[in-house]
Amino acid sequence: MTTRPTAVAGTFYPADPAELAATVDTMLAAAPATEPATEPLDAAAYVVPHAGYRWSGPTAARVYRELRDHTGPFERAVVLGPAHRVALRGAAVPTDTAWASPLGPIDIDLEGARLLVDRGLAVAADEPHAPEHSIEVQVPFLLRVHLPKMLPVLVGPGDPAATAALLSAVAGPGTVVICSTDLSHYLSEDEAHRRDAATAAAIGDLAPERIGDGDACGRHALRGLLTWARQQALRVDRLALATSADTGGPKDSVVGYPAFRLSE
Rank of each mutant, 00 (worst) to 15 (best):
L41G: 13
L41W: 06
L41A: 11
L41I: 01
A44W: 15
V47E: 11
P49F: 10
H50E: 08
H50P: 06
G52K: 09
G52H: 05
Y53A: 04
Y53W: 09
W55D: 07
W55E: 08
G57C: 03
G57P: 04
T59R: 01
T59P: 14
T59C: 15
A61T: 11
V63Y: 11
Y64I: 07
Y64K: 10
R65C: 03
E66W: 06
E66R: 11
E66G: 07
E66V: 08
L67I: 10
R68I: 02
D69N: 14
T71D: 07
T71G: 11
G72K: 00
F74L: 03
E75C: 02
E75F: 01
E75M: 05
V78I: 04
V78M: 05
V78S: 01
L80I: 11
P82I: 09
P82C: 08
A83T: 14
H84P: 13
G90Q: 13
A91F: 07
D96W: 15
T97D: 11
A98P: 04
W99A: 07
A100F: 04
L103N: 14
P105E: 15
P105W: 10
I106A: 14
I106M: 13
D107I: 02
D109Q: 06
L116P: 07
V117C: 00
L121P: 01
A122D: 02
V123D: 09
E127N: 09
E127I: 03
P128A: 07
A130G: 01
V137R: 00
V139D: 11
V139E: 02
V139Y: 12
P140M: 01
F141P: 04
H146L: 05
L147F: 01
L147K: 05
P148K: 03
K149Y: 07
M150C: 03
L151A: 06
L151F: 07
P152E: 03
P152F: 02
L154T: 09
L154W: 13
G156M: 05
G156H: 04
G158E: 15
G158Y: 14
D159E: 13
A161M: 07
A162C: 04
A162Q: 15
A162G: 06
T163H: 06
A165K: 15
A169R: 13
V170S: 03
V170E: 06
